Simulated assay, not measured.
Amino acid sequence: MPVTDKIVEIGGAALQTQAFGDPSSPPLLLIMGMMSSMLWWPDRFCEELAAQERYVIRYDQRDTGLSTHYPQGEPGYSFSDLADDAMGILDSYGLETAHLAGMSMGGLIAQEAALRHPQRVRTLTLISTSPLAVEGLPSSTKAYREHSMAAERIDWSDLRAIADFLRRDTAMLAGIRHPHDAEAASVLITRDMARAPSFASATNHFALVSEEEPARLQASDIKSRFL
């Protein structure tokens, strides 16, 4: 199965992308969540999607993987820029439209991209995320919220401490249908951290979602664009 790598220049940033499968197949852009590079879309997952006649593209968000990194605490981009990045990647691959799939924060990015460019989005697949402008949904568990807040106390220059936090995070986020594979998660975390020139820069994503989120859009605005 053909796998190609490509660096895409968008808005002053260089984004590392990777494509699986036949470019003539229907395109699917995978958008990963907070602090996570494209590696969190597993290789096998991408390969199996491509085997189902999809042209699969994954990429490193800004401040992750091999894409452009910014000083910790000083993201040189906005949340809307991340949505524009998704469309810019389609442009770079010569794609007028694509299916979008977003995980967690990637789901919010996919939704904003679809709201701003509905003519370019064939379908939306949203995983472990929330719909924009909808309130009152169940929140995460108390245990996970406490775990997340512990990130503020981590020394983000200590790679061992970061890896330990991420290993706990993957265990807490694991589903109940399949056993958590701690060894595979540890290998992935090690591989992910080794690719990033400054893994601490990924904490810039926290600042993006703590400011003005696209979720502030009105439900009526969303309906008017899609219905």
Rank of each mutant, 00 (worst) to 15 (best):
R191M: 13
E183Q: 11
L166R: 07
T129H: 00
M105P: 00
S130A: 10
A215T: 11
A182D: 14
P131H: 02
L173M: 13
S128R: 10
L188Q: 08
A163S: 11
T123R: 10
T203R: 08
R168T: 12
S104Y: 06
I162V: 13
G107L: 03
E96I: 12
A219I: 15
A133F: 01
S148R: 12
H205M: 02
P118A: 02
R191N: 15
V209Q: 00
Y144M: 14
F206W: 07
A110F: 05
I189F: 03
D192K: 02
D158S: 08
R191F: 13
Y144C: 07
R153M: 13
A151N: 10
Q111H: 04
T123Q: 10
A163T: 11
E213F: 11
S128L: 10
D164T: 14
R116I: 03
S92Q: 07
G175D: 04
P138V: 01
D192V: 06
S148A: 14
I154F: 03
A202N: 04
E212A: 14
A202S: 09
M149V: 12
H99R: 08
R216I: 13
S139M: 14
L166C: 08
T129L: 00
R145E: 14
S140M: 15
L173H: 08
G175E: 07
R167V: 15
A114C: 05
F206R: 04
F206T: 05
G106Y: 04
I109K: 01
L126H: 00
L159K: 13
M149E: 14
G94Q: 04
S92H: 13
T170M: 09
A184R: 08
Q111R: 02
I176N: 14
H117K: 09
F165T: 06
M103G: 06
S157K: 11
A200W: 04
T141Q: 08
T125H: 11
S157D: 10
D164K: 12
S210T: 13
E146W: 05
L132S: 01
S140G: 15
R195C: 06
P118F: 01
G107W: 00
N204G: 01
A101V: 09
E213L: 13
R177Y: 11
S186F: 09
S130E: 08
P179V: 01
A215I: 06
S157A: 11
N204D: 00
S128I: 12
G107P: 00
E183G: 08
L124C: 02
G107Q: 02
